[in-house]
Structures are given as structure tokens and as C-alpha cells.
Design a protein around this nucleic acid. Structure first.
Lengths: 368, 368
DNA sequence: GCGTAGTCTGACGGCGCTGTCATACAGCAG
DNA sequence: CTGCTGTATGACAGCGCCGTCAGACTACGC
């Protein structure tokens, strides 16, 4: 009914702007897409008309006509952990800087469908690309995906048209963490690992092992936690009785905190008796006792780099991927690590054995 | 060119499904929208055909034709803090459960444009509703918004078509936190507030004040932090010299941690000399020394409730908003709070003075 | 038999934009 | 002047779906 003056309360369309500006609808489209071949005069008139009407491009129509939604979906873990949250923040920033919108779907860990269903729902939404943040090994994940996928922190799992991976270089970071303890004189380093379904956890374990192997040190049995402080605490109770243990590399800050608590309760001083290094660098742990030595994860750099590659894959499907740049490695030395106690066996410094790399050392925000 | 067999490598459209199923395109549409008046037989055939072709609804087309994008945008803070991240997780879950997709835009604090530009970009994306999570007072924010907006944790700021607010009940929680300390026998309670640009911080301050006023206690000067442990530490150094101070309510867990660290370094024991209560309940702080007493924020409940109201406003614009339900209040008592030291002045228990409310008390995950 | 209500189905016209193509005109070389 | 290239503009045909409406068919009561 009433086709006459067009529904009163409706957002203006480009053709209305065109009418007001005295140009064709197509010219309005050109202006809003920053296309060439529009005179300054026309551009100005269109802008003015648009302002006056409060016009904004209709994204759905644009997506339908162009076949691209200009949005990227991210599959995130539904946890509020510092690392996961930091990565998400970094991704959002990078995606927006690249001119895309961000859609988020969380996969609650332990959910039956998991990553696959999250990816599926993103595909339903019509994203141009997908970021799988901190993927876990879900077993046989198999979704038909026809947009590029970025695995932030792990190997490709799907059969995809175009896959790109980028990561924080967890293995290198883990190796540097282990080297730090070894350099302090510890005979070996225990590892409190993250859940091995996570690729990130596997990488850290790999790096730890590499550091030990490089110096021919004994590899103590690995304890696996679930990232939580509670699991770190449980691990600490187990470990506390082993008096030969003088150093632990925990795969996450929270676990390190729980671990330290259990150790201290069991009468082992940190760092005097046992050194503990964490992983992530949640800034709050500069203010606990003892302030936590940890590896800073380059969340922002990894997100930025990854999204750069992803956007490249989206926009130039045929071109080669630009070379990946290695993320920085930062060791934040605070007070939870120290040389082993005197009475402990020191490794005789076999010549030629040295830290595999000179890791850039940063002293984190100290307690003034 | 080659218009014949349709571009080979393109996602199937509903009309192709229709052809294969031997029905009209409209029937396919009906099936995928769960509309009535489709025979079981037709439904089945459509489903089969769709599976065979790997068909999925094109969201852009759907949005264009229907005028609704079935997505909700959230304006979040670009920080990885536990509270903010928890709220985002809760929102995502609630939004998805309601059948909407989630788009995220962060506002980095201190950004010039701030919330307004974030809302604007969400509007450009064509969302059906907006959630402003943990809003801050940006001064004269003025965007023309014509979709419902939910302020999660604060009062309306925009001139909007439809505004709904929901919150974690920060004032009540803050009051309960203060009451807890008062009940322990402290003469008064100091407050380490969050940045007052945040409505959440204002609410907590309000609740703290209300608790003191209700008992006629002295109100010590408020110190304002920025949520960070560093700012809590700074506040702690200031406060440490005041030996009459026996209890502090910190508006955030991280600040509480920094505060405690400074206090302890200054030689004041926690909780023996000074009690400290935090706010948020980040589980990791059950494993520091001393384990932190804190108020659990009902992030999930608040997000769920808020999104429920928002979706209602979106889908039934004319109907009244359903009544809001009050979020639960949970005090997590650990070991950073205790009665004041003996030598301190006790308030003589004026008759009739009692905790304003019996707050449900939960003992948090204790260190076994 | 008829009328009526209830169920099922498809034709058709957009939604508001982008891509493609045709056109118009200016400037400039030959 | 002709022919060209480069710039500026608009007409037009969809993009893939949803809303509306008309039509067909069944079941039922009278």
C-alpha cells in the first residue's frame, strides 16, 4: 500500500543521494568506493547530499552484489584467559586496520562439535576468510571450506582452498625459556606442559625438549596441566617431593602461579630452592611473591602478521604468500628464577655448550 | 562469457537446489527458514538436494531481502583483562544462543573517537542491535542510532530508538564487599576505586559509600587506580604509611594484588594488619599469597540477561521490555580478609546496626 | 452438491548495491 | 579535420534471497 513517497522512516538509499546531488546512482557508488573517474565537483556534491540525508552504504546489498562481505571470522576459545584474550584483541585490531569487519564465534572447549561447527557457522555468515585462534587437535575435523583460513599457532587441519599459518613462535620461546634456566646453572629443567590437544602446548613442549637435547641434558617426565592455576597447584604437590628438581618451565603463567604456591606450601622456596618460569607475561604477575619470570608472547605481532597473510590470500588468491617475518622473542626476568642452590649438582660446563641463541633480555616492570 | 552451464566453481544457489528437488525456489526458502506449510515429503527432498549440492543460505541476500542481518554488534574494550574478557565470552554465548551472529569492535581506551566511532562502524556493518560492554563516559557522545542498544553495566548515553540497560549489579556487589569487611569488625573501609570514567567504577564507589553511610562510618578519601596491578601497587605505597587503615576494598582483583604487594613490602601484613578484598574473582588469585577474598561478578548471568532484553527489543519493538532479574551476589571468602588487629579501635556495636543484607557467602576454591 | 477453512505451492517483484558496457567530451598528434 | 587516448558519467542487468499474493487441492459440515 501507499507506494507514493516511500516509507517515511527508512534509511536513505544511494539513489536518493544521487537525486539530491544531481548525479546518477552509479556515481554515488563510485564516490563511496573511492573509485577513480569522478570529478572533484561531483564528489563534493555527493558527500554533501549524503551527509544531509544521513546516508550509509548498505552492507548487505554491497556484499550481495560484489560477492564479498569484507568480513573475517575468528574461531576463538571461550575462555577469559590472558593469552587467549590478548590474541583476540590483537586480531580485532589487525582485522580492522585491514579494512575488514570481525565476526567471532567461540568454541567452548569440550564441546562436541568444536572447531568444525564454529567454522561452519562462520561460513554460513559468509565471511571472506577465517582465523582459527589457538587451534586444538579435534581429531578428524573435516569441513569443506572455500575461503582462506589462517591458523594462528598451528598446522593446517582442514582441506582448504588456501591455508596460511602464523604463530607466536612458541617453540622458540619455549626453548629460550628453558635456556634461561639452564644458563643459570640448573642441571635440567622440568616441564609443566599445557594440554597436549593444543598445538600451542605441543610447540612449547617441543621447544623445551629441544633445549635439553641440545645440551644433552636429562629429560624429566612431563606433567600435563590444563592451563589453570589449579592444575599447576596439583602438579606442584606432585613435584615438591622430588628434591632433585631445581627448575620448572611452566607452559602458562597461571599454571606457574599455582605451581609456586604448592611448592611454597611444601616448604620449598622459590627461587632459592626451585626456579620457576612462566609463559605469557600477564602483567599482574609482576606483583606477586615472587614476581614471576616469564616469556612474553608477541600476541600483537603474531596477530598482525597472520592477518596480513590472510588478507593477502583473500585479495590476491593467485599471488604467492609474502614471506613471514619471525616474531620477536622476549624474556622477562623477574624474581622467580635464580641459580640452583649450592648443594645441588652443577653440570660441568662442557666446552662448546652454550645457550643456543642469545635471547634478547628484557627486565619486566619491576616492583620499583 | 559462457553463460551456459553457470560458472563452474561457485556456491550453489537455492534455485539450483529447487531444481534438483523438483520444487520451486520459494519452497527451498521455506524449508531453510523453518516456515510452515511445507509437506514433509518436500522438506525431505529439499534437505537431500541441499546436502548433495553443499548448499548454504547466502546471508547477504537474505539480509538484503529481509532487511535484517541477524547479527548483533558489540563494542568492547581492547584489553585482555579478566573481567572484560569474561563479559565478552558471556555475550558471545548469549548472542549465539539467541540465533544471532556476533560482530566485535574494540575501542582502545584513550582513542579520540572512542565509543561513538565504534558504534558507527557497527552501524555501517548493518547490525540489528548493539551491545556496549562496560561503557565509559566519553563526554558528549552523539550518534544517530536506529537500532536498539544495550548498555551492559551503565546508563544510556545516546539518543537511541530503544535503549536497554542491564548490569552486574556492581553497586550491590560493592556494598556486600564493604559489608563483609565491616562485619569482620573494621571501623571503616578504604576504597581503591577504578577510573571514574567507567560507569562500572562509579557504581562500585557508590556501593562502597552506601555501605559506610548505612552504618554511619567515616569515609576515608578515595584513591583512584586504572585497574592495573601497577596502579594498585602505587596506591598501596601511599596507603601503607597510614597505620589507622585496616581494610581496603579494591575495585578490581589486579589492583588488589598490586596493593597487597606494596603493603607487604612496607611491612604491613595481610590480612593480619590490613584486610584487602578484590572484585571480579579471577580464579588464579586463589593461588597467591594470601589467597584473595573477592566478589564474584556474575558475568554470564548479566550477559545473558542483557542480551535477552536486547533481543526482545529487536524482535518485538512495540512490546514492553520484560522485567529484569537481579543478578546473584557471591562473596568469595579466602584469606586476604580477617578481623582487624587487637590494638585497633573497634566500633562499639551500636544496637540495630548490622549488615544491610545477608549476603550469600561462597567459599571459593580453597587451596585444598 | 456447495461453501468454507485449512494446507501446500509457485510466480513474481523487488531489496540496494556493483559490474559491465556504452556514451560523451576534452586534449592532442598527425 | 580525423583518429586516438584518457577522463567522466550513466543505463542496465543482475547478485540470491524473501514477501506478497494467487492458485490448487483437501477435508469437512451442511
Amino acid at each position: 500500500m501507499a507506494s507514493a513517497p516511500r516509507r517515511t522512516e527508512a534509511p536513505p538509499r544511494s539513489v536518493e543521494v544521487a537525486r539530491l546531488a544531481g548525479v546518477s546512482q552509479k556515481t554515488v557508488s563510485r564516490v563511496f568506493n573511492d573509485e577513480p573517474y569522478v570529478s572533484e565537483e561531483a564528489r563534493r556534491r555527493v558527500r554533501e547530499a549524503a551527509d544531509e540525508l544521513g546516508y550509509r552504504l548498505n552492507n548487505a546489498a554491497r556484499a550481495l552484489a560484489s560477492g564479498r562481505s569484507r568480513s573475517i571470522g575468528v574461531v576463538a576459545l571461550g575462555t577469559a584467559g590472558y593469552g587467549v584474550a590478548s590474541l583476540l584483541v590483537g586480531i580485532e585490531r589487525a582485522v580492522r586496520d585491514a579494512g575488514y569487519a570481525l565476526r567471532v564465534v567461540n568454541t567452548l572447549e569440550g564441546e562436541p562439535a568444536g572447531i568444525a561447527s564454529a567454522v561452519d557457522s562462520l561460513l554460513d555468515q559468509g565471511v571472506d576468510g577465517i582465523v582459527v585462534s589457538e587451534p586444538v587437535d579435534d581429531g578428524e575435523v573435516c569441513v569443506r571450506v572455500d575461503v582462506p583460513v589462517l591458523f594462528l599457532g598451528a598446522p593446517p587441519v582442514f582441506a582448504v582452498r588456501r591455508t596460511v599459518t602464523a604463530g607466536v613462535g612458541a617453540d622458540l620461546l619455549a626453548r629460550a625459556a628453558t635456556d634461561h634456566l639452564l644458563d643459570l646453572g640448573h642441571a635440567t629443567v622440568h616441564h609443566l606442559a599445557g594440554p597436549q590437544r593444543w598445538y600451542a602446548a605441543r610447540d612449547r613442549l617441543k621447544g623445551w625438549r629441544a633445549a635439553l637435547v641440545a645440551r644433552g641434558r636429562m629429560q624429566p617426565p612431563v606433567i600435563e596441566g590444563d592451563w589453570s592455576a589449579a592444575s599447576g597447584y596439583a602438579a606442584g604437590r606432585e613435584l615438591a617431593s622430588d628434591t632433585s628438581m631445581t627448575a620448572v618451565f611452566a607452559a602458562g603463567d597461571d599454571m606457574a602461579i599455582g605451581l609456586i604456591q604448592a611448592l611454597v606450601e611444601a616448604g620449598r622456596r622459590v627461587p632459592d630452592d626451585v626456579s620457576v618460569i612462566g609463559f605469557d607475561d600477564n602483567p599482574v604477575f609482576a606483583y606477586v611473591n615472587p614476581p614471576l619470570t616469564t616469556m612474553r608472547q608477541p600476541f600483537d605481532a603474531a596477530a598482525k602478521e597472520g592477518v596480513r597473510l590472510l588478507v593477502h590470500a583473500i585479495e590476491k588468491p593467485e599471488a604467492d604468500l609474502p614471506p613471514a617475518t619471525a616474531p620477536p622473542i622476549e624474556l622477562v626476568v623477574r624474581s622467580s628464577t635464580a641459580p640452583p642452590p649450592e648443594h645441588c649438582p652443577r653440570p660441568e660446563a662442557s666446552p662448546g655448550e652454550r645457550s643456543s641463541r642469545t635471547s634478547p633480555v628484557t627486565v619486566g616492570p619491576p616492583v620499583t
